[in-house]
Design a binder for these strands. Structure first.
Lengths: 342, 342
DNA sequence: CTCACATCTGGAAACGTTTCCAAATCCTAC
DNA sequence: GTAGGATTTGGAAACGTTTCCAGATGTGAG
């Protein structure tokens, strides 16, 4: 509450009658300080309204209390959820969060890495749905910055993710178990996505389940679009209005896509699930509203967990243990037995 | 591409055969350097793979090339759009973005300000939909950090926002002009929101339009909920199923709420717009899918603009000029004349 | 060929912490 | 009371830049 300009550790030291070294120790908690000194320092600091300079501390110590979060965009539900989770966990731990949205393409990513991440501004990085090249990983590890990956495996980096193939297989199996045979799959394509092999993994899971059940995959029912409601809405309208007949069920690679399918169906006068069953993956907040059956992968939780993993690594505690997450199967009213079993 | 450990400005100086001062000048662009020296420095820096330390630079210069963005949450469309816009603009300008999600309540906000913002880590702050107290503003300005507000006026701070009252008035008027008289309004409430008087402003606009047209406002048709699809979906179901009769039109304070109303209507078998007209405010990306009539306020653009305003201020260029934005009226198929004009 | 002035350069002092090191002080057990 | 170890302390050297201040070098006009 004094003059805001530059009350430094030196002023505190003077006022508390101790050395700067002791002030630093008392305030940061590293090193031994007698209870008496600590108290005097704390009082003096409070009295003077002392605010330590992160920059100076970082420069001297190498620690920044700042974590970078890289993700393709903040506009899709999965990513904003992850971000929200990470942000909360970091705030709680007293860390800053520096955000890098790299764009859906990989164009900006390299410059981001070079221009920002390496400048010793970050203690660590959470990379969400990004395929880092071996060189990029090496670059990061060389500067001793731990990295945690989210949403898919990254070579040489601790990672948190669900088993995409298996989850897709189970989703498809759910439809088959209900009696569906005419099943379409909506997924992303390399045209729209650069992250991981996510669209591919989910398609493989789909095909695996179909193969296991001896059901043929109709290539014209493998549709590609971006991972948005609007994109899948448009594609689904074509799919469902095709004169060659329509599927009785759709497995969408994400909940946003599934919602696009549902709205498209409604627009065409189809009743879900009576005329069309729909299942997705994600656990979107709107799943409830649309009665969507899905595999919930709790992205918010994932964001928080990734941060905690990273912080543990920074504390030197744990080995970077990758983990495969178990999504929760949530059955709602968008799936049922087909109306006209063949 | 050499050993990554600590190639500093000193090494570059040595390698280029000039002083550290000259290296600094050549690299940062401030101060005069002969073309010859500049080239040698640039070459040496590239050769050694020199990466300047932001921390050291910040410490010495006081500039951080880091902008803070504070917003309540990243999970609502308006906010994630603003963030996306801001992030892009900052990346482009070579600035880092430090994200503070303060939570919808104001609880965490104060600590955020104190613990983070003031630590000379930020060159400036973009505050989105936050009501900063005079003390908080004063605190920021005292440390000479420019602030730009978004989403509502902040005392003593340059601000970017639409005229909420007027926009709400025009939205309501649109319904009235179509012939509607039984109009409900869905808005937020202090129970859910802490930001600004936004819900209030939009309600006032609604009431103004109704008053001007001599139409009575039915208090039971003033519904409150949070600014989400799910929240408004639930409330709208009650509204539209009320035995006392239902409105022919709904003005929702945000597009997300409007979408909740539309899905609720569909679930109840009502046809939009035949049985119910719906209008919102925002310009949500799903507006297209749902055919939503709305006032588009281009939040992504707002985020980018806010950043540019801030950067201009940092360059010492411009006076902090507040601006009132003009939303764009987008008519789609969710509004029409009422089915049964009285 | 000089002089005056602009441009360029290097030395060194900041910036505000952390942490190494050695010295001082405190304990405990004998 | 004392030796030996543990705990506290302060001095001062980092950390890697920027920038002030002079001094050196270049330029153009007379």
């Amino acid at each position: 509450m004094e003059t805001a300009v530059s009350v430094s550790i030196r002023d505190v030291a003077q006022s508390a009658g101790v050395s700067m070294a002791t002030v630093s120790r008392a305030l940061s908690g590293r090193g031994n300080v007698s209870e008496r000194s600590r108290q005097r320092v704390l009082d003096a600091a409070a009295e003077l309204g002392f605010v330590p300079s992160y920059n100076a501390a970082s420069l001297a110590s190498g620690r920044t209390r700042n974590i970078g979060v890289m993700l393709p965009t903040v506009q899709r539900w999965f990513f904003s959820s992850v971000l929200e989770g990470a942000s909360g966990a970091l705030l709680e731990a007293g860390y800053d969060l520096t955000l890098y949205t790299t764009g859906e393409g990989s164009g900006q990513r390299h410059s981001v890495l070079n221009d920002f991440l390496l400048r010793q501004r970050l203690d660590g990085v959470v990379a969400v749905s990004l395929e880092l090249s071996p060189e990029e990983v090496e670059q990061l590890l060389r500067v001793k910055r731990p990295v945690v990956g989210l949403g898919g495996p990254i070579q040489g980096v601790a990672t948190l993710h669900i088993d995409d193939v298996e989850t897709a297989r189970r989703a498809t199996q759910h439809l088959i178990n209900l009696g569906h045979r005419d099943i379409a799959h909506l997924s992303g394509s390399p045209e729209f996505e650069r992250d991981f092999a996510l669209p591919v993994s989910r398609r493989v899971g789909f095909e695996t389940a179909m193969g296991e059940a001896g059901v043929a995959v109709r290539p014209e029912w493998l549709m590609h679009t971006d991972f948005t409601v609007a994109g899948s809405h448009a594609v689904a309208k074509r799919l469902l209005a095709a004169p060659s007949g329509r599927p009785t069920a759709v497995f969408a690679a994400s909940d946003e896509m599934a919602i696009g399918v549902i709205t498209a169906a409604q627009e065409l006068g189809l009743r879900v699930p009576y005329d069309l069953s729909v299942i997705g993956i994600d656990g979107h907040e709107l799943g409830e509203v649309f009665g969507l059956t899905t595999f919930d992968q709790a992205p918010r939780q994932q964001g928080a967990d990734a941060v905690r993993m990273l912080l543990r690594q920074l504390d030197g505690d744990a080995a970077p243990q990758s983990a495969i997450l178990e999504p929760e199967f949530v059955v709602r009213r968008s799936t049922s037995t087909p109306a006209q079993p063949r």
